[in-house]
Write a protein that binds this DNA or RNA. Structure first.
Length: 293
DNA sequence: AGCATTTGACCATG
DNA sequence: CATGGTCAAATGCT
């Protein structure tokens, strides 16, 4: 069994144990703090497990892609332009507070298609950079309204902007989380980041993966933040970037290495249970289908 | 008029 | 064959 799979199983077993402990706590008397801690731990564990599985899947896709590239391309009939595009960079945003999902991210987009997606209640809209033909900018994004929360739009970015027409974002976001992965030579980078640049204050939840330290530090910290703009001024903060660490090549045996950005564990501004649990709600939302396949 | 959006058709992929 | 991504003609908007 692959090392990563063992880690996922370990995580899930730990989650089960903690859930049992929580159930026991709820049956008997227990402190609210203790329950909160358990819930937070369980959510973190499942988020880790999902991320590990996702990451492994992405790694395999890339490996297959590299193998195909290495073969004699004459035997591979690729008529579609898409295949040469290859997903060099993928960012997934989950944003709320948008009227129609047209998040102003500083770039000009032109809608070129919309599709009903099997298993989803809401259609997915396809946008390309307005300067695609004038500046040969191949950036593309997909926007889909969340099935679970009508206020949430999931935005997936594909490709980098090569155009230089960037305006300042005016978007009001109450929640923003992004994940990006891109390829650079033989290395695969998986990072999480915020696109926003002027945060000042935070109401954020950061989930620590430090107990994975003894599991070869494969996966690092997730963080989520709530922030919004009030009269053009940022009211909240985002997570900080920490260090980057390689997936242990000794255990993977693959030429592909990975890097995952991390952030420290903390729960800030959680003086009220409401704010704490509303933050937890965000985590639950992300945990379901935050990354499209 | 010029540009953006809509929407059905087309095509690649699994 | 089902599904998702893209194309392009028709239509809408300014």
């Amino acid at each position: 069994m692959m090392m990563e799979e063992k880690l996922v199983i370990n995580e899930l077993e730990l989650g089960k144990e903690l859930a049992n402990r929580l159930m026991s706590n709820l049956k008997h008397t227990s402190s609210v703090d203790s329950n909160r801690t358990l819930i937070s731990e369980i959510l973190r564990i499942y988020q880790n497990a999902i991320f590990m599985l996702r990451f492994n899947e992405d790694k395999n896709i890339l490996k297959r892609s590299l193998e195909i590239d290495g073969k004699d391309s004459r035997n591979v009939f690729k008529k579609r332009k898409v295949s040469e595009k290859k997903t060099e960079k993928v960012k997934v945003f989950v944003a709320t507070g948008q009227e129609n999902g047209s998040i102003d991210d500083g770039h000009c987009w032109r809608k070129y298609g919309q599709k009903e997606i099997h298993g989803s209640k809401n259609p997915r809209a396809y946008y390309r950079c307005t300067h695609r033909f004038t500046q040969d900018c191949l950036a593309v994004k997909q926007v889909q309204k969340s099935d679970t929360d009508p206020l949430v739009y999931e935005v997936k970015y594909l490709g980098n902007h090569t155009c230089d027409n960037i305006t300042s974002p005016k978007t009001t976001m109450t929640t923003n989380f992004s994940v990006s992965s891109f390829e650079e030579g033989n290395r695969v980078h998986v990072t999480e980041q915020s696109e926003d640049t002027k945060p000042t204050k935070s109401e954020e939840v950061m989930i620590n993966l430090e107990d994975l330290e003894n599991k070869k530090n494969i996966f690092r910290t997730f963080s989520f933040s709530n922030h919004e703009i009030d009269n053009g001024v940022w009211k909240s903060n985002i997570f900080s970037e920490n260090f980057v660490e390689d997936l242990s090549p000794a255990t993977s045996g693959s030429a592909i290495t990975s890097e995952v950005l991390s952030a420290p564990a903390s729960v800030e501004n959680s003086e009220t249970a409401d704010s704490y649990f509303s933050s937890l709600d965000n985590i639950i939302d992300f945990g379901q289908d935050w990354l499209w396949s």
